[in-house]
Nucleic acid binder design. Structure first.
Lengths: 181, 181
DNA sequence: ACCTGAACACCGTTCAAGT
DNA sequence: ACCTGAACACCGTTCAAGT
């Protein structure tokens, strides 16, 4: 990828578009941000965006990948911390994207490209969590089930407002119920 | 309420609107169902709907309440079954509404009336689950935390496709980790 | 009280045309 | 290859007018 000047320029331009789209999606929400608005912010005609992305959903996927790659940069900082810390970190990472997480789930049925991104994202996260649990001595099959549960808890906490002590209690209970004594 | 003929007629008409809207929302999704389409199905002008509901979101709330009251009718059939059965029942009840559940979460920030309905719904469900857990000998504070966890697991299972054995394993693990031995 | 026709301000997207 | 002006088919919603 990015073999020549052309591809590099393309990436640079896409990065610019996604940076602006990201900021607007996060502050106004996906539905609250029109393609028109994004284009205006960038100083281009609205249909220019369609030269880079086939649809608004594809632009969202670009934005999601952008966020993910930023999160991946910070991943090494918690890779050898205990499970509970890892979950708390994931919550903090995705907290600003709360609304986008909900948008992704709402658009699953309607958008193939969103569905693909979502499925791939879950496969990645579950594999990582399974790996962690196995390192802590949890059997393979059980680790897979617990990874799903852990994911649901993080998503639930993201979707619903809660106090710091609620979060703490849930993570504490989950990790001590999940891990061997 | 419904003190006189007028109010009764209003309820009847609203029930007719919500029945049609419900069917369309469930088959085409909320975003996939235009007010125009609902009106056409009913044989009225699109703006007629606005005499009964201030907005599309308020119509959705009507539909949600309709679904809820149908579910409440069936609630007594599982009221004395064990927790695991209760959760499996709730999953079956809400399974057809998967998409509406996601829509509610996605519209939380944008619609006050949806937010109110959502918060009230969660308060109701959590109170019911806490009551069940306390009857099973779980302490009050712990029951509140576990009720939240149980809700997140049901929502997670609703939002994400999964096999029957996955569901079974998750419910089994949760109920046996939550309840005193 | 209940419903309509016509319009409003927008939306995502397409297309032919420009450079 | 990249971008635009103009349009398309729709959207939720409003309003003045009818009965």
């Amino acid at each position: 990828m990015a073999k020549n000047k052309r591809d590099i320029d393309l990436k640079v331009k896409q990065d610019e578009l996604e940076s602006t789209a990201s900021r607007l999606f996060l502050s106004l929400g996906y539905d609250g941000t029109s393609m028109n608005r994004i284009a205006r912010e960038l100083g281009v005609a609205p249909n220019t965006l369609y030269w880079y992305y086939a649809s608004k959903d594809e632009l969202l996927v670009g934005v999601l990948n952008r966020q993910m790659s930023q999160t991946l940069v910070r991943l090494p900082t918690i890779v050898d911390k205990p499970l509970k810390e890892k979950m708390a970190w994931a919550l903090r990472e995705f907290e600003q994207s709360r609304e986008l997480v909900a948008t992704v789930h709402a658009r699953l049925e309607q958008s193939e490209v969103i569905r693909e991104w979502h499925d791939q994202f879950h496969r990645f996260v579950e594999a990582a969590v399974i790996h962690t649990l196995q390192a802590d001595g949890v059997a393979r099959e059980r680790a897979a089930m617990l990874a799903t549960v852990g994911t649901f808890l993080v998503e639930g906490l993201l979707a619903h407002p809660h106090s710091e002590s609620q979060r703490e209690a849930i993570l504490q209970w989950f990790t001590e119920s999940a891990l061997p004594a």
